[in-house]
């Protein structure tokens, strides 16, 4: 079927309002979900499903309240649904671990925000090869196998580099926090 796009109706104010709020919250929402389900593609999928849930219930959103916490509550439910379909992940639901992690992250968030201001500067300080692997994996979303082939490293070696890089970045950030450099 050939859509005649010229005849599609314009979106209404409600949709515009929702999109504005969602787009503004989306980054925090992703981080919230990733604290529970860290794999990037899984977290993205959960955020997408959350968007659908939120839109379906947007008529119940109280505009006098903040949007992001409301969205995070839905995201937690979507995470639980996702986990319940995966046997090995069910431990996240035991003894309220998901809620504990979400709650603790909220407490730590100001500290995270403060520290992550140094992330850019610390990335610049990484050795060239490690920086290249970070860019390939996180920025260009290349597979670890492709990165390994290009970098002439083993796949396991690339995983190790990525793990080591996060540790190095953290050390750098802590150092920067202590010395107050780069801000």
């Amino acid at each position: 079927m050939d859509l005649n796009r010229d005849e599609l109706p314009s979106s209404d104010e409600s949709k515009a309002h929702f999109l504005r709020l969602f787009l503004a919250s989306e980054r925090e929402l992703f981080r919230y979900v990733a604290a529970l389900v860290p794999d990037i593609s899984d977290a993205e999928e959960i955020v997408q499903q959350t968007a659908v849930e939120l839109w379906g219930r947007f008529d119940r959103f109280d505009p006098s309240q903040a949007f992001t916490p409301w969205a995070c509550r839905f995201a937690l439910n979507v995470v639980k649904q996702w986990v319940s379909r995966r046997e090995k992940w069910r431990g996240l639901l035991d003894e309220g671990l998901a809620e504990q992690l979400a709650g603790r992250r909220e407490e730590l968030r100001p500290a995270f925000d403060q520290r992550m201001k140094h992330l850019d500067g610390c990335l610049e300080k990484l050795p060239a090869e490690q920086r290249g692997i970070v860019q390939a994996y996180y920025f260009r979303r290349e597979s670890v196998e492709a990165i390994a082939a290009n970098a002439r490293r083993s796949v396991e070696g690339v995983y190790k580099v990525l793990q080591r890089v996060r540790a190095m970045l953290r050390e750098c950030i802590e150092r920067a926090m202590r010395t107050g450099e780069m801000l």
Binding site: R31, A35, P38, R105, M116, R170
Partner: peptide, 11 residues
């Protein structure tokens, strides 16, 4: 939480 926050921000 520290480690996954770093990971998410890089992503």
């Amino acid at each position: 939480l520290w480690q996954v926050e770093m990971h998410a921000r890089l992503a």
